Simulated scan of single mutants.
Amino acid sequence: MSSHAIEIHGLGKQYRIKGNSTSSLLGKIARRNQEDSFWALKDLNYNLEQGKVLGVIGPNGAGKSTLLKLLSRITFPSAGKFTAHGRMSSLLEVGTGFHPELSGYDNIFLNGSILGMSKTEIKSALDEIIEFSGVENFIHMPVKHYSSGMKVRLAFSVAAHLTAEILLIDEVLAVGDASFQRKCIERMEDVSRHQGRTILFVSHNMRAVNDLCNEAIYIDGGQLVKSGTAEEITSFYNKSLEQRAISIDLADRKDREGTGSIQLQSMTFTDENGNPLSELRSGEPVTLEVKYAGSKAPTGLNVRLSIGRENDGFIGALSNSLAGNQFENLGTEGTLRCKLDKLPFMTGKYVVNARLTEHNIVTDDVKRAIVFEVKEGDYFGSGDLFSTERTGVYINQHWE
C-alpha cells in the first residue's frame, strides 16, 4: 500500500477565453479565430505523505483554489492525473452544500451527505458538530438568516468531524473571528496528529501555515515554484511580497499640475512593521507611505488624498490637515505616513487622486496616483460580513 495520501502527476487545468460576442456570421467566425486559452494550473507534480499537513500558498490568482477544485473533482483536469488513497472531503467556499430554506440542523445532514458522510456517521457526530460550531442557539433557524461567519463555523464543524482520511480546506477561515480561527487550527492539528488524517490547507495567513503545516508549496502563475518546510516556504512568500507590493513610482509622471516646488515621488501600502503589502483586507491595520521631494524644505505642507470608486464617485479623503496633524521640521525630501488602525473600505477597487499644498498653494496634483483593491475582511470582528457589489466604507459604531 502506498505511503502517499495523494499522488499528483503533471496535473493541469486549461480555460478558454473567447473574444467579444456578436450575432453575425462573420463575427462568429472571427470570434472563433480569437479564442485563446490560459493555464490556471500547469504540470504540477507532488506526492503528499499520509498524515501530513500541506500548506498551499501563493498570490491571488496563482492557481491554489484551482488545485483544490481539481482534487475535489469539482472540475476535471485538462492534463495529468492524481490518485487519492482514502476518502476525500473539502471545504472550499462559504455555505457550499447549504440550502438557505433549511435549518442549520437539517443542513448538517445535507452538507455531511455532500461531503461523503453516511447518515449513521452524521448522527454519531451530531452533538459534537453542533457544540463545536457555537451556533447551538440558532441551530433550528433557516441558514438564510445566518451571517457569513455562522455559516463558516457550521460548515467547518461538519467537515472537521468527518471520517474522511483527506481534508481539503480553502481560505474560508478568513471569514471567522480570531478565536474561532484558533479553534479551527487546533482541531486540524488534532485530527492530523492524533487521527492520522492528511490535510491540504490553502491560506494567506502565514502564522497559521507555520503553526499547522509540516510542509508547504508555493504556487505562482499556475506552476509549482518551490516546495519545502512550512517555515522555508512562508519565508520565501514574505520575500516575494516585496516584489508585488501595492506601490507606485510617481517621480516620472508627466500628467501633473502645480508649481512643482514639492512633488510626490511614490506611494506604498505597508503593514505595521513597514513591510510592503501585496494585498489589502477590510478591517486590517495598514499604513500608506507617501514620499515627497522638493527644492526646499516645505512648511505648512498638507497631503490630501481623495479616494473614489474605480469608475465613479468620491467616497472619502485622507489628509493630515483634516486629521489635525501638522508637519514640523521636514527635510527637502522624506516619507510621510498615514496610519489606519482598521482599513475602512469594503470589498472593491479604489482610485486615489493625490495633491500636495504648501500654505494652500498647490505644488503637485496627480490624478489616479494609485489604484488599489480591497479584499473581503471582518471589519467589526463579529464574523458578519456585509456582502455588497458596491464599494463603500465601514463606519465605526456601537449599539446599546
Rank of each mutant, 00 (worst) to 15 (best):
T83F: 00
A84T: 04
A84W: 01
H85P: 02
H85Q: 06
H85C: 10
G86A: 11
G86S: 03
R87W: 00
R87Q: 05
R87C: 00
R87G: 01
R87K: 12
M88N: 04
M88G: 09
S89M: 00
S90V: 01
S90K: 02
S90C: 06
L91S: 06
L91V: 12
L92D: 02
E93P: 05
E93N: 02
E93Y: 09
G95R: 00
G95K: 03
T96Q: 05
T96N: 13
T96F: 00
G97T: 08
G97W: 07
G97R: 11
G97Q: 10
G97H: 11
F98L: 08
F98D: 03
H99P: 04
H99S: 11
P100W: 08
P100L: 06
E101D: 12
E101M: 01
E101G: 01
L102Q: 00
S103D: 01
S103H: 06
S103R: 01
S103F: 02
G104T: 11
G104R: 04
D106N: 14
D106K: 04
N107V: 11
N107M: 08
I108R: 07
F109N: 13
F109I: 13
F109Q: 12
L110R: 05
N111I: 13
G112L: 09
I114P: 07
I114H: 03
L115K: 13
M117Q: 11
M117C: 13
M117Y: 10
S118N: 06
K119S: 15
K119P: 00
T120G: 13
T120A: 10
T120N: 08
E121G: 12
E121Q: 14
E121C: 03
E121R: 09
E121P: 04
I122M: 15
K123Q: 15
S124V: 10
S124Y: 00
A125R: 10
L126C: 11
L126V: 03
L126Q: 13
L126Y: 12
D127F: 07
D127Q: 14
E128Q: 15
E128S: 15
E128F: 14
I129W: 06
I129V: 11
I129D: 05
I129G: 05
I130L: 03
I130W: 02
E131H: 15
F132C: 13
F132A: 12
F132S: 12
F132N: 09
F132P: 09
F132E: 14
F132G: 07
S133W: 11
G134M: 10
V135Y: 06
V135P: 03
N137V: 01
N137Y: 05
N137C: 08
F138P: 03
F138Q: 06
I139F: 08
I139D: 01
H140S: 12
M141I: 10
M141N: 09
P142H: 05
K144G: 04
K144M: 04
H145P: 05
H145L: 12
H145Q: 14
H145N: 11
Y146G: 05
S147W: 09
S147Y: 14
S147E: 09
S147N: 12
S147K: 14
S148C: 01
S148Q: 10
G149C: 13
G149R: 15
